[in-house]
Amino acid sequence: MAYRIVHYINQFYAGIGGEEKADYQPEIREGVVGPGMALKAAFKGEAEIVATVICGDSYFASNMDEASAKILGMMKEYKPDAFIAGPAFNAGRYGTACGAMCDAVSKAFGIPVISGMYPENPGVEMYRKSAWIIETPDSAAGMRKAVPAMAKLALKLLKGESVGKPSEEGYIERGIRKNMFYEKLAAERCVDMFTAKIKGEPFETEYVMPVFDRVDPQPAVKDIKHAVIALVTSGGICPKGNPDHIEASSASKFGEYDITGVNDLTSEKYCTAHGGYDATYADQDADRVLPVDVMRDLEREGAIGKLHNKFYTTVGNGTAVANAKKFGAEIANRLVADGVTAVILTST
């Protein structure tokens, strides 16, 4: 049986009209429309386009949540095995819509999602982690090149075959690290690369060093004597027994613990859940990681307004940046809601 594909295109490729029709509301039609013909041909019967979703670019851009929810609803009865959007070439709104729909479909149905775009299309930067985006030229003149590559990758994903490197398959690098077994030991690969480097021969690193983004500093705290200061730590300090089972490494959660009336973190009541450092000292006296004792003194002396009555903790050990980001954002929201002025974050 052929795999079932739902294809997404905009009003222009559906032949409805150009910019003047860009507010066209989403609809779904059975079978192939517009560029779907070329896709169909490229599938050579292995997959079939069961339905085509059409949506105006402006409509999608100004009603993203609503439009994508509506489209997901329409698609459901077609039971797709994969979702293909575009190709959008260098059309910005179309590319963004294709990316957003790929992201939504992947989350809702867990099926492969494929699009095609020119590398500078803004949809690439926004959605390259969510979708497989085949690299295309900047205009529809590249349709003939884009479509077979999209179809080929879609079939590979549908069959559960492993996907090669971006340069081999023609998709835009997603920035997702995937394990594989190489021919040689990592040690031999490293000495190979080393040899090439010292001889001045070309070599390709296996991992390009990351560049981290920046956030502007917040203004200073003006009135510390009335400020509410919260303590947050990535050092895993938690009530003894780790009641929330925060993982020793690669944490999937953070803990929120009330310290109303707690003046000192004693070894009877607190410990660390962290698996990345020698925990002896933190287990003996958790104030060494989370300075509740000193903060209470400062509070009593009036040096600060108040120590916030909850502290937040997670384990920074081997925890993905994406998770750490999520925890940080959620903790910040809760702290703002509780009227906290500023934060001391301790790390081990």
């Binding site: 995937k178 021919e183 030991l185 490293c190 296996e206």
Partner: peptide, 14 residues
């Protein structure tokens, strides 16, 4: 993921 490189495992970027 031996960092003495005692396995053939590695990673690549999708």
């Amino acid at each position: 993921t031996s960092e003495l490189g005692y396995t053939k495992l590695g990673a690549y970027t999708l």
